[in-house]
Nucleic acid binder design. Structure first.
Lengths: 195, 195
DNA sequence: GCCGATAGTTAACTAAGTTAATAATTAGGC
DNA sequence: GCCTAATTATTAACTTAGTTAACTATCGGC
């Protein structure tokens, strides 16, 4: 089918229009207002979105060099990190990634087919599986480390030790807080638009 | 088809195993190391991922109360913010959201069908469109503000003005840096795994 | 008046999830 | 010891959020 352009209606009478785009504040907390405006706050939220979009792309690009998607690589890292402790189960990985067990099952399947991970039944609990990296999986992580060092250094260029630690602390707090905020949002969402 | 459980192979000989999970460092920059370890850095990256996943869900939950997806609401906000200046085009919105024009076209279509936005041909340049909020679109933004204030305050609970400003500054720098890092990653990616 | 660049749209595809149903197993109450 | 409820993992079908590539229409320079 051809890409015939859609007909655009003639300019309608202008919307009532706030003109300068003044909108109601999106925060109450005075600590988040700069000279009474939430502009800086909204900018921060946009930056967080921009950053996370790009961070995903970054992870995707790095992962492609070993034939993985970004999420698969992330799972590989988490299994590596949890290894050495008690058996790594599907649910533990799902919790660490804050995603569903179903998704972990699907993606670990790809990693196992690629020979980077293996799965064995836990003799103590035959419902559970034990996920482990293979030697090839560990080699893949090691192979990516040099590129990762270059990229991470670039990413944090001109950010000193103080700013790094402050960021790490604030992000840890935000991660803690966001679950409560999400619970509130979902309560409102269910009340107002249960669909 | 029934969900017959997959047969799990008997425990294979253990992978070569790093045992304690010691992996090569993922950063060089000493400002990012704590006692010679990159553990705090990796934790920060995980936190950034966790946070952005949840932030997406938060936006999704809020947006559902007015029948929008998270991204549609985001586009609505950006058009509101850019309004009042020169005509808002598809490309400008795409740039602000760091996404493709194709995606903006598709999502603004939904917003227009919902009566929240309208589109008119620019008489000065008939290739371009002018996106504007309708009165209903502005009303939707206003209607969400009270819930947003509650949720944002919860999200930034126990984060003072100093930490907020430091976070805003560091995130702005990270957003600047990540484009360079992404360029490096994509160069490596194309070199090593052009597929 | 042609030619390359720019603006937008469409179609087809991919990544990254989700929910719901199902199966296998375990653990607890009695 | 047996039944029931909970837990662990898997599968299938679906959704959201994007992407790239091809294409149309228009503009600006020469």
């Amino acid at each position: 089918m051809t890409a015939r352009r859609q007909v655009i209606p003639r300019a309608a009478p202008p919307a009532s229009g706030r003109g300068t785009g003044v909108a109601p504040l999106t925060v109450n907390d005075p600590a988040l207002l700069v000279e009474g405006s939430d502009a800086r706050f909204r900018r921060l939220i946009y930056d967080l979105y921009s950053f996370s979009t790009r961070l995903d792309k970054l992870r995707g690009a790095i992962s492609r060099t070993v034939g993985l998607t970004g999420r698969q690589y992330h799972i590989l890292l988490v299994v590596a990190e949890l290894g050495g402790g008690p058996p790594v189960t599907v649910n533990k990985v799902a919790e660490a990634l804050r995603t569903s067990a179903a998704f972990v099952t699907k993606e670990t399947g790809a990693l196992i087919r690629a020979g980077l991970m293996d799965k064995a039944a836990n003799p103590k609990d035959r419902r559970a599986v034990m996920l482990r990296l293979t030697a090839k999986g560990e080699a893949a992580i090691d192979a990516l480390a040099p590129a990762l060092r270059t990229i991470n250094d670039d990413l944090f260029a001109n950010i000193g030790a103080g700013a790094f630690r402050a960021l790490a602390e604030t992000m840890a707090r935000l991660v803690t807080n966001i679950d409560a905020a999400l619970a509130v949002a979902e309560r409102i969402s269910r009340k107002k638009g249960p669909k």
